[in-house]
Write a protein that binds this DNA or RNA. Structure first.
Length: 319
DNA sequence: AAACTCTTCAACCGCAACATG
DNA sequence: ACATGTTGCGGTTGAAGAGTT
């Protein structure tokens, strides 16, 4: 069964031969593609227009970048995917010379596995529950890591005096300290309302991190304030993480040594270089210097993965 | 060396949105 | 308003090559 556009004609399918490529390139270079449905006839090809279009876009276009993806490109894909999900065409727009098909294939063959091996759900970028991770581990040959990054902030931020630029540390926890608990969802039906509510009210717990992060203001689209609290909230009052898909699991009370270690982490985070922040300090993240890595760990994974596609479109990705 | 399994990625499929008459 | 054609997209398939037994 061929495409609807070419059911009347006899068309060739499958891989393209160099001769066919040559015909297509010559035709489009000389005349442009115009209406794709007319291209096969004009170019002397026994293909349907759809197939010609695909071949040109994914393989023959002169502006295509060939070869493996760089680490930088990979990071862009991960970051943008975290926000947009499987919108390959949108993601590809952030990678000059790459096609949606290429990005999709790279995701499915490489990045997906990499995230799984790090204990992250490739759909949501949240941490997998213990059960999910266990089942994944059984099928993943390369998941021998004893710890993984759960909170990776690379953004620049200013302290309350608006003077000090900081780079927050990466905080990792060993596997045996990872736990997840689902907050019972009483989600309003309107995703925009849910998003607004999350931004304005909800407390986000970067799972496994010693930071308790609260969005305290979102009045301006170009800036977001994030407040850092102490550990106690997370560990005792609301020991939980937003995770729409997670299986509910019990959180064990931390041991005395664990608490001490967490307190040390807390102090480390508040002590950046020579500058010491109050543990309840607020940091304002400017839109211009807002790194996707921050988005990753705070806003998105926690608040937005509830099918907020309409909100995503309004996000205005202007790199 | 042969058989089998796994991985990659080009190409296909079906659907939705849009354009045109 | 409707029918038809075109374009673009995301999910899926399967051939080919690489790796393993």
């Amino acid at each position: 069964m061929g495409h609807r556009c070419c059911t009347k004609q006899k068309v060739k399918r499958g891989l393209w031969s160099p001769e066919e490529d040559d015909k297509l390139v010559k035709h489009i270079t000389a005349h442009g593609h115009g209406s794709w449905s007319s291209v096969p006839k004009l170019a002397g090809l026994q293909r349907c227009g759809k197939s010609c279009r695909l071949r040109w876009i994914n393989y023959l276009r002169p502006d295509l970048k060939r070869g493996s993806f760089t680490a930088e490109e990979e990071q862009i894909i991960i970051d943008v995917h975290r926000i947009l999900g499987n919108r390959w065409a949108q993601i590809a727009k952030h990678l000059p010379g790459r096609t949606d098909n290429e990005v999709k294939n790279f995701w499915n063959s490489c990045i997906k596995k990499k995230l799984l091996s790090q204990g992250l759900d490739p759909k949501t970028h949240n941490l997998l529950s213990l059960r999910q991770r266990a089942s994944n581990k059984a099928s993943c040959k390369h998941s021998q890591q004893s710890s993984f990054t759960v909170f990776n902030i690379t953004s620049q931020a200013r302290d309350t005096n608006n003077t000090v630029m900081m780079a927050a540390p990466v905080v990792t926890f060993p596997d045996n300290q990872t736990m997840a608990k689902q907050i019972p969802s009483s989600e309003p039906p309107n995703p925009n309302a849910a998003y607004a509510q999350n931004l304005n009210e909800s407390t986000i717990h970067p799972y496994g991190s010693s930071l308790d992060t609260t969005i305290v203001s979102s009045s301006s689209p170009s800036s977001t304030s994030i407040q850092l609290h102490g550990l106690g909230n997370m560990l005792y009052e609301n020991p939980c993480i937003w995770d729409a898909n997670a299986i509910v699991e019990t959180i064990e009370e931390p041991s005395a040594e664990g608490l001490q270690s967490l307190q040390q982490d807390k102090e480390k985070i508040c002590q950046i270089g020579t500058h010491k922040f109050d543990t309840d300090a607020s940091f304002e993240i400017e839109g211009g210097s807002f790194d996707l890595g921050l988005l990753e760990s705070t806003l998105m994974s926690a608040a937005m993965y509830r099918d907020l596609s309409c909100t995503m479109d309004d996000f205005g990705w202007n790199f």
